[in-house]
Amino acid sequence: MAVDEISAVQNERRWALAMGGVAAVMLAAIVWAGLGLHMNPPSNIETVDPNTLHVAGEFAENNLGTHVDSAGKITTRIVTTQFAFVPECVVVPQDMQVTFRLASPDVIHGLIVVGTNVNTMVVPGFVSQVHTVFDKPGDLLMPCHEFCGLGHGQMVAHVRVVPIADFRPDGDGRVTCDN
């Protein structure tokens, strides 16, 4: 190999090393976010039958919305369907860990809670689960973000974040936007 080409390749190698350094910085930051700050994509592989979702179990119509169990764990269950979130508004407390569990009885949907890292696809056949903590009170927009049919654009819901003092579960542990 000609000496000149060797020097060219050496220059390229220097460049590639620098690029490796850049990539390493980013990877380290991502891994730190995942390990230290619990910022990971939703990845719970948990199956559920989309066709009987409404008949029984945790995604039956009257089990949806926010529920506080006896241990104090807060779970918000939402069904994404053509073309609505059920329920259309959910209440969650500020500064406490909340678990969203979602399922779809028909086609693929997705959601993002605007201004937060809550973002997941809802794939029929699987339960999507996201844990998060909301640190500011207010009504957050939650649109459907995957094309699910002609009503996709009107499929919008809200997450209502309330101060803990205003988060009052009823006797059954449920909190809704209506009360």
Binding site: I30, M39, N40, P41, N117, H145
Partner: peptide, 10 residues
């Protein structure tokens, strides 16, 4: 960037 995808996905 894995987790960061949540800010912008879709």
């Amino acid at each position: 960037s894995y987790g960061m995808n949540a800010m912008v996905h879709n």
